[in-house]
């Protein structure tokens, strides 16, 4: 079980990194999402894997899983959404400024944009 999760995290992060190195904005967004899954799972795994022991105090439960990584990851997931949303709007802004969705704004496209600016 541990090995499987480790492989999954490795795969998620390598795919995330590869996509982030692409030249267009949309793959970068996808890559960032994959990488954040990988990091969330990694943080979560640092509390070790426990099955059938949710951290909810009750009389019957004999043991609980580690609640601290879960609390950290819960906010990380929501902040990850905030970050994705910000990157998406950044990509759209880039699209409207430079006319295409390349991550580096080239000189030509910036100039084209100036010429072609709607009056």
């Amino acid at each position: 079980m541990e090995a499987m999760l480790a492989i999954a995290i490795g795969l998620l992060s390598s795919c995330g990194v590869y996509l982030m190195l692409r030249a267009r904005t949309f793959p970068v967004i996808l890559g960032l999402t994959l990488l954040s899954y990988a990091v969330n799972l990694f943080l979560f795994a640092s509390g070790r894997l426990t099955i059938n022991a949710p951290p909810i105090i009750s009389a019957e439960a004999s043991h609980y899983t580690d609640p601290i990584p879960q609390a950290l990851v819960l906010t990380a997931i929501v902040i990850g959404f905030g970050m994705t949303a910000y990157i998406v709007t950044l990509a759209l802004r880039g699209l409207s400024e430079s006319g295409d969705d390349h991550v580096d704004m080239t000189v030509e496209s910036a100039e084209n944009d100036k010429e072609g600016e709607p009056s």
Partner: peptide, 8 residues
């Protein structure tokens, strides 16, 4: 990815 998997 390999590094991450190994660390995990």
């Amino acid at each position: 990815g390999g590094g991450m998997a190994f660390t995990t």
